[in-house]
């Protein structure tokens, strides 16, 4: 039995809907991971001890356990304590927080690397420590880590396939649905692979644009 792609067109709507969901979940989780990453970095570096310690446990939970398990915990676990999240929301939170923790590591290093004179100059003008962080230090740190954060975002796109296990009909699950009806795994998984590749290209193009914008102001 050879490859037969003639079965694909009949399922194109399902696949495209999967693409849309994959993009939606990736973009939403990417935004969460970016904003969360900045917030986590500032907490890890500057929050009082009492906040920092429990926060370290939280960080460890997200870095030391599989993303799949985290998604199960958020989607199936939280129901038990009365928090019933829609699968999409659970997926965004799981992916977003997971990658926020990784982004936070990058941003922390970058914050530490911003020249001490920047903080001094800002404080000398009368800015408070938090104003100086917000207006001077963090923007520079974030700028410096845009390229590695971009790499994380591409990993995020690929890991978004994991949310299929909690029932979000994104690209991978859509392909599986088609396979369930046609018994053509090779064809549909290949189609999904091509779709991921194309989304990836689009994402890289966006990232390159952002990087170029930043390079102009250096």
């Amino acid at each position: 039995m050879g490859l037969d792609f003639t079965v694909v067109p009949a399922w194109i709507d399902t696949i495209l809907l999967g693409v849309v969901w994959t993009i939606a979940i990736t973009v939403a989780a990417a935004v969460l991971s970016f904003v969360g990453g900045i917030l986590f970095a500032v907490i890890a570096l500057y929050a009082p001890w009492l906040v920092r310690q429990p926060f370290r446990l939280f960080t460890w939970l997200f870095m030391g356990t599989p993303l799949l398990l985290q998604l199960f915990l958020i989607y199936f676990g939280l129901i038990q304590i009365g928090i019933d999240l829609p699968a999409f929301v659970a997926g965004v939170i799981g992916l977003g927080l997971h990658f926020a923790v990784y982004n936070s590591e990058l941003i922390q290093t970058a914050i530490i690397a911003v020249d001490r004179g920047q903080m001094e100059a800002a404080r000398t003008l009368g800015l408070s420590h938090s104003q100086a962080l917000r207006k001077v230090v963090v923007p520079q740190a974030v700028r410096d880590v845009i390229p590695p954060i971009g790499n994380n975002m591409i990993a995020l796109l690929k890991d978004s396939a994991l949310v299929s296990v909690i029932g979000v009909t994104e690209l991978t699950l859509s392909a599986q649905l088609a396979i369930g009806r046609t018994y053509r795994p090779f064809e549909f998984y290949l189609v999904a692979a091509v779709c991921y590749y194309i989304i990836n290209l689009g994402m890289e193009a966006v990232l390159r644009r952002i990087e170029r914008r930043i390079a102009l102001s250096r």
Binding site: D115, G117, Q118, E120, A121, A122, R123, T124, L125, G126, L127, S128, K135, V136, P139, Q140, R143, S217, R218
Partner: peptide
């Protein structure tokens, strides 16, 4: 912070804010 508003300081290594334009450097504070 209030005291520092009245005391300008100029550093050996300038310490300009590289992510801001000249205009923004001057007007941020």
């Amino acid at each position: 912070n209030q005291m520092r508003e009245h005391v300008g300081m100029v550093f050996q290594h300038f310490n300009l804010f590289p992510h801001l334009t000249v205009r923004e450097n001057v007007t941020m504070a």
